[in-house]
Design a protein around this nucleic acid. Sequence first.
DNA 1: ACAAATTTTTAGATTTGTCTAAATTTATTA
DNA 2: TAATAAATTTAGACAAATCTAAAAATTTGT
Lengths: 219, 219
Amino acid sequence: MTHSEENYIKALFHLSIGDVEVISTNAVAEKMETKPSSVTDMMKKLSEKGLVHYKKYQGVSLTDLGTKTALSIIRKHRLWEVFLVEKLDFTWDEVHEIAEQLEHIKSEKLIDKLDELLSFPKFDPHGDPIPGKNGEFIERDNQLLNQIPIGFSAICVGVKDSSAAFLRFLDKNNIALGNEIKILEKEEFDNSLRILIGQRELHLSQQIASNLYVKMIKL
Amino acid sequence: MTHSEENYIKALFHLSIGDVEVISTNAVAEKMETKPSSVTDMMKKLSEKGLVHYKKYQGVSLTDLGTKTALSIIRKHRLWEVFLVEKLDFTWDEVHEIAEQLEHIKSEKLIDKLDELLSFPKFDPHGDPIPGKNGEFIERDNQLLNQIPIGFSAICVGVKDSSAAFLRFLDKNNIALGNEIKILEKEEFDNSLRILIGQRELHLSQQIASNLYVKMIKL
DNA sequence: ACAAATTTTTAGATTTGTCTAAATTTATTA
DNA sequence: TAATAAATTTAGACAAATCTAAAAATTTGT
């Protein structure tokens, strides 16, 4: 597989999370920052290789083989991210770009050994689950911070938006995975939140709160 | 730079070691396992980018910029090889292929951090020197085992041929970098050697002996 | 339900890196 | 040194991945 094919497969996987049946050509084009006509060409090629179901004008979806392939690429991406943070002291906002390159390195043994070096991590630095060697993939039952009711507390477990800008915002405000956040108040007008994190009170916009995955603490 | 351009630059560097003035199109084609016409095309492109001196029919050579570029790629290749052996327990015959892929990863910080993780190694698993961050490159004054006179001893410091086949031969015969070898006898007819390594006596063909870099022990 | 808007595909062009075959230049040698 | 051989370059083609513009299919809205 070429890098480009792998990137399309990965995009298709990300677009198919949730209850998505088929993915539109335009959706893929937007995700890949390319033109719909280029997507059509690639879908034909991936279809011939048995990686996607494709009928013209009917949208596209991954085959079982395509899903397995996507998971293998995502596994590589996320293991490399862990490596960069744990072994080379990169920050979580620096690793995505480099992992985008490293995910295309072809060597099963390399990934197995890397997994071992990192002690078989289950999550990447952004809290995203790392698929297993044989395609096992645990979709977490995540809630977003803006879905937590007033008065309840939750633990940060991941970020939905993993752009450097968002990650640096979290760093700047000392919000990290594992932190406990209590919802003190919700502003009706703009859905912003007043929260308690550690000893500090903070005000978070709806945009921030809807990009933080949390696990609510059972009372 | 594309992967292909980088591979050509690296090939040109390897072809220019020694007292080579200019490199022929055919030599490059052979090294790259491609056709001379493809080489011509690429030399034009590299010339426009200021990486090589090229005049048609007159052969090619690296510019200072080209040399610097080559050293940076070789540095990456060799650091990755050390990583694979030291951190992921690969054997020295397994690392070349994977390093060929890893050497194209673009991130200066990644390489600096990797260098640090590995404690700034000066040689790769095959005994080849690792260029410095700023292009410092120590060509060792290597001798080959077949150049050592009878009765003298030498330490293995590197391999000229780093093919998996040759490396596995050395493993099988328990010859490793750092070992001391004494020349007991030379066979005039085929230039083969009788050597002493540790407590063992071995017979090495000329082909083997001319692919082992050694440092003679001063008496 | 049918015209308009949107989405998707096709057709043809472009770039990169490669190839083959033919032409050209340089090197060899009789 | 002139003919022959070898090396190199040019010309034209191809595959991969992309693009633009036009055509075709589908969806939407009244």
